[in-house]
């Protein structure tokens, strides 16, 4: 195979894998948005907290990985349930902006508290998978990326099924559509809010562990939240398929920018090209590629 083409091929495949790992984090935004109509800016911090807990259980108590993961899962479920109870439930019925500002406040708080409680040094999470790339025909793949992409696809498929086919998923979408009407239809709206936040906690754990393995666990991990924001906007805030496609696009664009633009300008384009793309998409389709346009009867 031609060398240039080989290079492009590698960039694209790795971009796709990284992109799917972004999707795993991005779906947390979608879960909250689909049920509460608010954007949770603390999703990146959730990933950080989940990863810190898992890393802590691994390092400090020397627990086996599976136990540490279970511990992390339990922690995130309780943590997010409590958060919904204490901070977000009292805000039901308030303007969406108030809820969004509250999540920004939470995000900054966690980012400050994280190092204070757990220390600032980077902790590793070592999953029992090899670091060496796998060379498979023309593919040149990194195992953690493959694992992350696989987990991502599996969970996104599960969520997609949940929202489209299951009765609870339909009820959740009804709640997002109108809190008041859902209540009047006999749906316990608060319970669905709690469910959404707990699900967001679960994906935060997955995202936090996968990314923690890839880049190490410290407050930098919280940057993931903003990092995947173009993914969410590109795909549409309320679309699971959008998250997959948005993730792949962002991953590939980043990889191409790193491969072709960085050598010319001296580096750094990888970090902002997704945002450029996001702004362009916002201009053309404000609700994203797969998002719901606002239906208004005239």
């Amino acid at each position: 195979m031609d060398g240039d083409f080989q290079f492009l091929f590698e960039l694209v495949t790795n971009g796709i894998l990284t992109g799917l790992m972004y999707s795993l984090v991005a779906v947390g935004f979608v879960l909250i948005y689909k049920s509460t109509d608010a954007i949770n800016f603390a999703q990146g911090e959730f990933c950080m907290i989940a990863a810190i807990v898992v890393a802590g259980l691994l390092q400090l108590y020397d627990l086996p990985l599976i136990v540490a993961l279970a511990g992390g899962l339990a922690f995130m479920l309780i943590f997010n349930w409590g958060l919904e109870r204490v901070v977000l439930r009292p805000m039901i019925g308030r303007p969406i902006v108030a809820i969004i500002m509250a999540t920004i406040g939470l995000a900054l708080m966690f980012r400050g508290l994280g190092p204070l409680v757990f220390g600032a040094e980077t902790q590793p999470i070592n999953l029992p998978i090899p670091d060496d790339p796998v060379i498979w025909g023309p593919f040149f793949l990194i195992p953690i990326d493959m694992l992350g992409a696989g987990i991502s696809l599996a969970f996104l498929a599960a969520f997609g099924w949940f929202f489209m086919k299951s009765r609870k998923g339909v009820a959740m979408r009804a709640v997002a559509d109108s809190h008041q009407v859902s209540m009047a239809m006999g749906i316990n709206v608060e319970r669905y809010f709690a469910l959404a936040w707990m699900l967001a906690g679960v994906v935060a754990l997955l995202g936090g562990v996968v990314w923690g393995n890839a880049i190490g666990v410290d407050t930098q991990l919280a940057q993931l939240g903003l990092k995947v924001f173009p993914v969410v906007i590109l795909g549409g805030l309320d679309s699971i398929i959008g998250v997959i496609v948005g993730g792949i696009i962002v991953g590939v664009v980043e990889a191409l920018a790193a491969g072709y633009l960085d050598p010319i300008v001296g580096g750094g384009t990888k970090d902002f090209t997704p945002y450029v793309l996001m702004i362009i998409v916002l201009m053309i389709r404000p609700y994203g590629i797969f998002g719901k346009p606002i239906i208004e009867r005239i």
Partner: peptide, 17 residues
């Protein structure tokens, strides 16, 4: 006040919650 983003059938499913 139908659930505008759900299909007619999904509206009914939500109604039968």
């Amino acid at each position: 006040r139908v659930f505008a983003n759900l299909t007619a059938e999904e509206n009914l499913i939500a109604g039968g919650h």
